[in-house]
Design a protein around this nucleic acid. Structure first.
Lengths: 97, 97
DNA sequence: TTATAATATTCCATTTTTGGAATATTGTCA
DNA sequence: TGACAATATTCCAAAAATGGAATATTATAA
């Protein structure tokens, strides 16, 4: 396996290594959302959300679709759900958080 | 879902967000290895490997077992393999790396 | 054209990560 | 005990991430 493949994977995990971005991913698991919906539902400033979305998109984890003034984001990687479910199970049974 | 659960998950992804640590995880997928084997097989300085292992251990991704002078590390999270396989498939079919 | 709503970008100070180099710790054996 | 092998720790400067605040861009509608 090539070194740049590790770099690429590291980029994906780096995009996921932030609580705000994880919360966004979780929210998008419900289906496509526009930025305004994300801003309304999660409690962060709009520029913060916007920057987070861009980082997730650069990593290839989400994709966007423009429609008029709105930009809709949705998940792009299918296997994320399984991994997150597994992590959740492990974390729920963790002795101390 | 609680905020500290996102923090905890972010910690896990942060531990995975580095090419050297991903290479170590890959090497450990083969089974338990001592630090010396890891140092011999991957081309990094021993202190670098040691620090990487500790970060992975703190995140709860690997565990260690001491035996004499040696310390053996092994993977602790089962579902990682599936997710990595899925990521590999996606990355292999990516237009440009 | 102008105002406005939705989203993105820039700037910036603070914190965190990174990886190299030197050194410390620990266990074993003679 | 003393030497040595395996591993961990500390120190440090450079690089990157973080998140707040202000501002810019873009599309639409009046």
């Amino acid at each position: 396996m090539k070194s740049n493949l590790y770099e690429r994977k590291a980029q994906i995990f780096k995009a996921l290594s932030n609580p705000v971005r994880l919360e966004i991913i979780d929210f998008l698991a419900d289906g496509e959302k526009c930025v305004c919906e994300i801003v309304e539902n999660l409690n962060y400033e709009q520029p913060h959300i916007s920057k987070s979305l861009i980082k997730l998109k650069e990593a290839g984890l989400i994709k966007d679709r423009k429609e008029g003034l709105n930009v809709y984001y949705s998940l792009k990687i299918c296997c994320m759900g399984d991994f997150f479910n597994c992590l959740n199970k492990i974390l729920e049974s963790e002795p101390k958080l």
